[in-house]
Nucleic acid binder design. Structure first.
Length: 649
RNA sequence: GCUGCUGUAGCUCAGUGGUAGAGCACUCCCUUGGUAAGGGAGAGGUCGACAGUUCAAUCCUGUCCAGCAGCACCA
């Protein structure tokens, strides 16, 4: 038997016979380590303690203390234990797959009846029994025929299909948790007792298509969450509660920003305060874009199908379009229009008016374009996914050589906007040429090269998504990170030589001949609706003063102060602040509470002391106390803070 | 669109085969109170829509609409 040499993290190394397992190595170091061990890393590869090791290398024995592999391992074993529990309770349920995901795992089952919340309780109880039994985990490598025969006999069609999808020649690894078996690439724990029985919870059930394919059967997906210990689980549950408190649908109602109703699903009814936020954001974007050399336009919302046929949308996108039929007087047929689902074809129409010279390029046409898309009923979600929305859209018409500079300029603008709006970090996803595409490889090389150079000059982290570009050109997607770590895809930048071609856009070059311009589609916010949803959740409703719909409420403590309250409001309004008086016959406690709940950033309380001294008492949202200041000091403080960030510079 | 769940007052939710209730909000009255809910009274509902079963339906059944959690979709 040959010898191998394994080195340890502390720098020591020892010789072992080839074929030794990590479990045996742990035992050779210390029995206590062997007991605590959950898995090992061999040359960076996560391995099972029971797998034989045949070659020399660096080895680390993992325990539950090692968060990185331990969490993954625990969640994976929980998935198996849950599947076993389900099959022990309902033996006729078919198992499929159960991967680890954020904070836990899920497992898809084929079962005629869906699981109920009571079922989840039963499954949890059964899982706890399995954990308490400390059943050993065994593993074997089987050849394909044996595994196929095994699953045929047991009537597990989904497992057979999975085997079919594993490349020919690859070993199949079989795992047993006690007597329960599953096909799995591993690794796994040593025994079920290593799972923390008090640190998991089955969270919910939902339907999910087999292999993510809507044409395949729908399975019952059971979600679970798991951590290494009870405290971590509890912390996570607390975080979920916090996230729920930020839900923009809830805050939108509480702050009276907007509503939805049955008669217009997916369409926003903006209320005065919500519309104030919208207009403030729109005004900001308008200043930034004009400052960056864009020209603003406005194009029609209802456009004849003829244009959509030319642009290709009628063929490719019709099922998502709102169609508007009109009986025209004297016409034999109805005229068919569509609400525009995007602005690009209309922008080309503006471009196409008159003859363009190379001297006109780059031409940057921006529109806060109202678009409608018939989104599928299940995809709508508050402001985040709607059927009627407004894009901060623009199209840059330019020559091929100008693409790089335009891209770099766009990223600079986007980075500055995100920063102003309270988002420090963003990531770029760079989607490159797909297999099926138009255009020469030389043109793709050149354009992709320019985009990558622009990305690098911006210094933002990026990843390349090979083959995910459109058939006509590469694109960038920009994902920002919010205050609680969630990512949102908002910005986009897409290179398009195709639409100018379809719609006949051209310019006269230096050579006096006609040329096709490139068209760059780009957006920073994506849509105002969605972005405001993100802002609300990012700030948990506590918008910065410049965006807050009601910036100051001036509340009287006694009615004798009412006149002075109105004077203060007038002064604040004269300074450009959105101020309101609250002289209702209520106690100051009541008023403070109500406006705090309503996320008003500044409350001025006015009693007789303030009237006599000509001062105000300022209370900022989330601060316990108040400060007594002169009115002019408060005006100065608040109006500085209420100045939009771009106007400070 | 698919699976499951939900739909009762402006909001959050109880409840019942014999046409409904609470708290908050709203209106009025009392109260003028110093920084997160003062007290009282009142008004407010085709119980999501449409069919069916029943002597009788908000409740049972079906269809539809909308919302929620996922899945699929987001050229």
């Amino acid at each position: 038997m040959s010898q191998i040499t394994l080195s340890f993290p502390d720098g020591n190394s020892r010789d072992y016979p080839a074929g030794i397992t990590a479990a045996e190595i742990a035992e050779s170091i210390a029995p206590s380590l062997a007991k605590k061990a959950v898995s090992a890393n061999l040359d960076g590869r996560h391995i099972d303690l029971a797998w034989p090791i045949d070659a020399s290398g660096e080895i680390t024995i993992n325990t539950l203390k090692d968060e990185e592999p331990a969490l993954e391992l625990i969640r994976h074993d929980f998935a198996h234990v849950m599947a076993r529990a389900v099959q022990e309770i309902w033996p006729d349920v078919k198992v499929t797959i159960g991967p680890v995901r954020d904070y836990g795992w899920f497992y898809d089952f084929d079962r005629a009846e869906p699981f109920t919340p009571e079922d989840l309780g039963r499954i949890e109880a059964k899982m706890k029994q399995i954990i308490a039994a400390r059943d050993p985990v065994r593993t074997e490598v089987w050849d394909r025929d044996r595994a196929i025969a095994y699953y045929k006999e047991r009537g597990e069609p989904f497992k057979l299909e999975l085997i079919d999808r594993i490349p020919e020649g690859e070993d199949l690894r079989m795992y047993w948790h006690g007597d329960w078996q599953d096909l799995c690439r591993g690794p796994h724990l040593q025994h079920t007792g290593q799972l923390p029985a008090d640190a998991f919870k089955l969270s919910h059930v939902a339907g999910a298509y087999w292999l993510g394919d809507a044409s395949r059967p729908m399975l019952q997906r059971v979600y679970g969450i798991a951590f290494r210990n009870k405290a971590d689980l509890k912390a996570h549950l607390t975080m979920l509660e916090e996230a729920a408190k930020r839900d923009h649908r809830k805050l939108g109602r509480e702050m009276e920003l907007f509503h939805f109703q049955e008669e217009a699903p997916g369409m926003v009814f903006w209320h005065p305060d919500g519309w104030t936020v919208y207009r403030e954001l729109e005004a900001y974007m308008r200043r930034r874009q004009i400052g960056a050399g864009y020209k603003e336009i406005k194009t029609p919302q209802v456009v004849d199908r003829v244009l959509w046929e030319k642009s290709g949308h009628w063929e490719a996108y019709r099922e998502n379009m709102f169609i508007v039929e009109v009986d025209e007087e004297g016409a034999k047929e109805k005229r068919i229009n569509a609400l525009k689902p995007m602005n690009c074809p209309c922008h080309v129409q503006v471009y196409n008016q008159g003859i363009k010279s190379y001297r006109d390029l780059p031409l940057r046409l921006a529109e806060f374009g109202s678009c409608h898309r018939y989104e599928s009923s299940g995809s709508m979600h508050g402001l985040m996914r709607v059927r009627g929305f407004v894009q901060d859209d623009a199209h840059i018409f330019c020559t091929e050589d100008q693409i790089g500079e335009e891209c770099a300029g766009f990223i600079r603008l986007l980075a500055s906007v995100y920063k102003d709006l309270g988002f420090d970090g963003f990531e770029i996803k760079f989607s490159t040429r797909p297999d099926v595409r138009i255009g020469s490889d030389e043109a793709w090389d050149k354009v992709e090269g320019m985009l990558e150079a622009a990305i690098k000059s911006a210094g933002a982290p990026y990843e390349i998504d090979p083959g995910e570009g459109a058939f006509y050109g590469p694109k960038l997607d920009f994902k920002l990170t919010d205050a609680i770590g969630r990512q949102w895809q908002c910005g986009t930048f897409q290179v398009d030589p195709n639409l100018p071609d379809r719609l006949g856009a051209e310019f006269i070059g230096e050579d006096g001949a006609k040329h096709r311009p490139y068209m760059l589609h780009r957006a920073i916010l994506g849509s105002f609706e969605r972005f405001i949803g993100i802002l609300i959740e990012n700030y948990a409703g506590k918008l910065p003063l410049w965006l807050a719909p009601r910036q100051v409420v001036v509340a009287s403590i006694v009615s004798d102060a009412d006149d002075y309250v109105h004077q203060v409001v007038d002064r604040l309004r004269a300074a450009g602040l959105r101020a309101e008086a609250d002289t209702r016959n209520e106690k100051i406690n009541y008023k403070v509470r109500e406006h705090s709940v309503g996320k008003v950033p500044a409350i001025l309380a006015i009693g007789m002391k303030e009237v006599e001294a000509g001062t105000v008492s300022l209370r900022r949202l989330d601060s316990q106390g108040s400060r007594t200041l002169s009115l002019e000091d408060v005006v100065a403080e608040l109006s500085t803070e209420a100045t939009p960030p771009d106007l400070h510079r």
